[in-house]
Amino acid sequence: MLRFFRKIRQNLLAENKFTKYLFYALGEIILVVIGILIALAINNANQKRLTEKNEETYLIGLKEEFQTSKLKLKELIAVNQSNYTGAKQILKYTNANAMPPSEDLFSKVLYSTFSTDIAFNPNNSLLQEMINSGNLKNLSNPELRIQLTNWVSTIEDIRRQEEELGIQRIKVLDMFRTNNYSLRTIFEKAGVSESLGLPNTEITESNLSLLDSKEFENNVLMFIITSYATEEVHYRPLMQDLDKILKLIDIKK
């Protein structure tokens, strides 16, 4: 095509038809520009389709991750509730007017309340990959990008709160590192000695005197307060963030 126009230009110049030559030259330029614009439009359209396809893949993966994280958080909230409910039951036993529990019951409540540590471990592998590779910016929804960015910092706050809760839990457990109280009694009365592979013993030491310890009562109180704050100030707002992120993902899809 360009060779054809070049030949016409040469003929026009040879015939001294300069005006027509300019028109043909201008036509060539316009055709070249149109060709470039069409090529750019096709390239942009292809790039847009590729970007949208990649975004769709990321959204599907993110939805799976956050749905799994939501299930984990629900289970963790239930465990935390069980822990501080048990701790409140123990606190009732410390009341001087309350009927003391049996050794078996006290051991079971102690074990169920303080044997489980609390730690939220969300599925964030895809999100971290997107952040590290810079692909988070390819999500077209700016609100979703903001929520995902905030999610990372929120998880860090959650971890600090869980560390504090762990410290309060350890303070209660530390009271059994002395000669005054017996972990073995708790394991045997709670029925877990066999599963732990511990040898049986015929002599058990009572832990009921803990209920008269102000230090024990204070430690249990701090555990209750920290557990409650972990749920109300951290886990429940985090659940709201999870729901909002999942909703934003579904809106895009």
Rank of each mutant, 00 (worst) to 15 (best):
F5A: 09
R6C: 05
K7C: 01
I8V: 13
I8T: 09
R9P: 00
Q10H: 12
Q10S: 13
N11L: 12
N11M: 06
L13S: 09
A14V: 02
F18N: 12
T19S: 14
T19L: 14
F23P: 00
L26P: 01
G27T: 10
G27E: 12
G27W: 05
I29A: 10
L31K: 06
V32H: 09
V32E: 06
V32S: 03
V33F: 14
V33T: 15
G35F: 14
L37Y: 14
A39I: 12
A39D: 05
L40M: 15
A41G: 13
N43K: 12
K48A: 14
R49K: 15
N54T: 03
T57A: 11
Y58L: 03
G61C: 01
E64G: 05
E64C: 00
T68F: 09
S69C: 05
S82K: 12
Y84W: 13
A87F: 08
A87Q: 05
K88D: 06
I90Y: 08
I90G: 02
Y93L: 07
N95I: 06
A96L: 11
M99S: 09
P100Q: 06
P101M: 05
D104C: 00
D104Q: 15
F106P: 01
K108G: 03
K108T: 09
S112R: 10
F114K: 08
S115E: 11
S115I: 06
T116E: 13
I118T: 11
N121K: 12
N121W: 00
P122T: 07
P122G: 07
S125N: 12
L127Q: 02
Q128R: 14
M130V: 04
N132G: 04
N135P: 04
N138P: 00
N138F: 08
E143H: 03
Q147I: 02
Q147W: 02
Q147T: 06
T149N: 11
W151H: 12
W151Q: 04
D157H: 10
R160A: 10
R160F: 11
E162L: 03
E163Q: 12
G166T: 09
R169N: 14
R169K: 15
I170F: 10
K171R: 14
V172F: 04
V172C: 08
T178A: 04
N180M: 02
Y181Q: 01
S182Y: 02
S182E: 01
G191Y: 09
E194G: 00
S195P: 02
S195M: 10
S195I: 15
L198D: 03
E202K: 13
L208I: 13
L210M: 15
S213P: 02
F216E: 05
N219S: 07
N219L: 01
N219T: 02
F223L: 08
F223Q: 07
T226Y: 03
Y228S: 08
E232C: 01
V233Q: 13
H234M: 13
H234D: 02
H234I: 15
H234N: 10
P237M: 08
L238F: 15
M239D: 13
Q240C: 00
D243M: 04
K247R: 11
K247I: 08
I249S: 04
I251Y: 08
K253D: 10
